[in-house]
Amino acid sequence: MFPQVRMRRLRSGKIRDMIRETSLSVDDLIYPMFVDENIDSPLAMSSMPGISRLPVEMAADDAKEAAELGIPAVILFGIPSTKDDKGSSAWGEDDVVQRAVREIKNELGKDMYVITDVCLCEYTSHGHCGVVDMEHEQILNDPTLPLLGRTAVSHALAGADMVAPSGMMDGMITAIRDALDKSNCSDVPIMSYAAKYSSAFYGPFREAADSGYSFGDRSSYQMDPANSDEAVREAELDILEGADVIMVKPALPYLDVLYRIKTEFKMPTAAYNVSGEFAMLKAAARLGWLDENKVMYESLLSIKRAGADMILTYFAKDLARMLK
């Protein structure tokens, strides 16, 4: 009881650092990269200051810069030159992500851990994450699964260290795990977007990945923002199907979900600090309303404190420079 107990005694000097419960390290970071086979020079994203689409030939240079900052991993998103109703540019041996993986691994080898996003939305003409029945405007779950498996295998054979399915199709982890194992890629882990919400915070990403949809929305396969019990069930199912890492996306509006999933399953857990979260802080900082470095650090620290072992964030390079 006060005055014997004074909490402020431990908030000054070296002891403040010594008793800190949560630490944020460059080792926690995964840097998202957008690789576009339609361009020959970087294309800046207006809604995401500092982020650009890169030509395939520059992917290794960007990854090398990240590695020199100490960032251990990147995740690749591809923008193909052609799109069709099934997203068939997603799984070719010489398609955009496969080429980018080889570029990075040839340049950096084990010095950069390469993760690939496995989804069809960037490759389909309609912009949805699976095969579509256009007559009824329905996204078809089961016909999509073999295409996700085929895409994951093509990434692994190109040299990806990990694949990250993000389409929120039921059974996608089983389909991808089976496909990888049958292709002698059993050592390639899966990071599942297990709890991916149908969120308005993805807006700037659609500019960066050229993945807007031509009808409806993604609420029939991405989660309702009102639900958290459902997220726990989604994560459990993906774990049972063979996911090695599970993810919550977005991060900041869903810290309660992140905490629940980490507490419940106690397994490697990622959180995606998405484009809208990034854009808001950048915009407020540009207007002088917030100190960018301080709010960036505080936001990412909160994600780590809630339970994330790794954070996918467009702030990765900024934070790495700050921590250095």
Rank of each mutant, 00 (worst) to 15 (best):
P3K: 03
I19V: 15
Y31Q: 01
P32G: 04
F34G: 04
E37Y: 03
D40A: 13
S41M: 03
P42W: 07
S46W: 06
P49V: 00
R53L: 04
R53K: 14
P55L: 09
A60C: 03
D61V: 13
K64Q: 15
A66E: 06
A67F: 02
G70N: 00
P72Q: 02
K83T: 12
D84E: 13
D85S: 15
D85Q: 15
K86Q: 14
K86N: 14
S88H: 09
S89Q: 09
W91I: 05
G92H: 03
V96L: 05
Q98V: 05
V101M: 06
D111Y: 03
Y113G: 00
T116P: 08
C121P: 07
E122T: 06
T124E: 12
H126A: 04
C129V: 10
V132P: 07
D133Q: 11
E137T: 09
Q138E: 11
L140C: 10
D142H: 12
P143N: 08
P143M: 08
A152D: 09
V153S: 11
H155K: 06
H155I: 02
H155C: 05
L157N: 09
G159H: 01
A164D: 02
S166I: 00
S166M: 00
I173T: 12
A179K: 11
A179C: 07
K182M: 11
N184G: 09
N184V: 04
N184F: 08
C185F: 03
S186R: 12
V188F: 07
V188S: 08
P189A: 05
I190M: 10
I190D: 03
S192N: 04
Y193S: 04
A195I: 06
K196C: 07
Y197V: 10
F201E: 10
F201I: 13
F201D: 11
Y202E: 10
P204I: 01
A209F: 06
A209H: 05
S214R: 15
S219D: 11
Y221G: 06
Q222S: 05
S228W: 14
E230A: 14
V232N: 05
R233V: 00
E234C: 11
A235C: 15
E236N: 13
L237N: 13
L237I: 14
G242P: 02
A243Y: 02
D244M: 06
K249A: 08
K249W: 07
Y254W: 11
R260Q: 14
P268V: 10
T269D: 01
A271H: 00
A271F: 01
S275W: 03
G276M: 10
F278L: 04
A284G: 13
A284E: 14
A285Y: 12
E292C: 03
K294N: 12
V295N: 01
M296W: 00
E298I: 05
L301S: 02
L301W: 01
S302I: 06
I303M: 11
G307F: 09
G307W: 03
A308Q: 09
D309F: 00
T313D: 00
Y314A: 04
A316H: 01
K317S: 08
R321L: 05
R321G: 03
K324E: 07
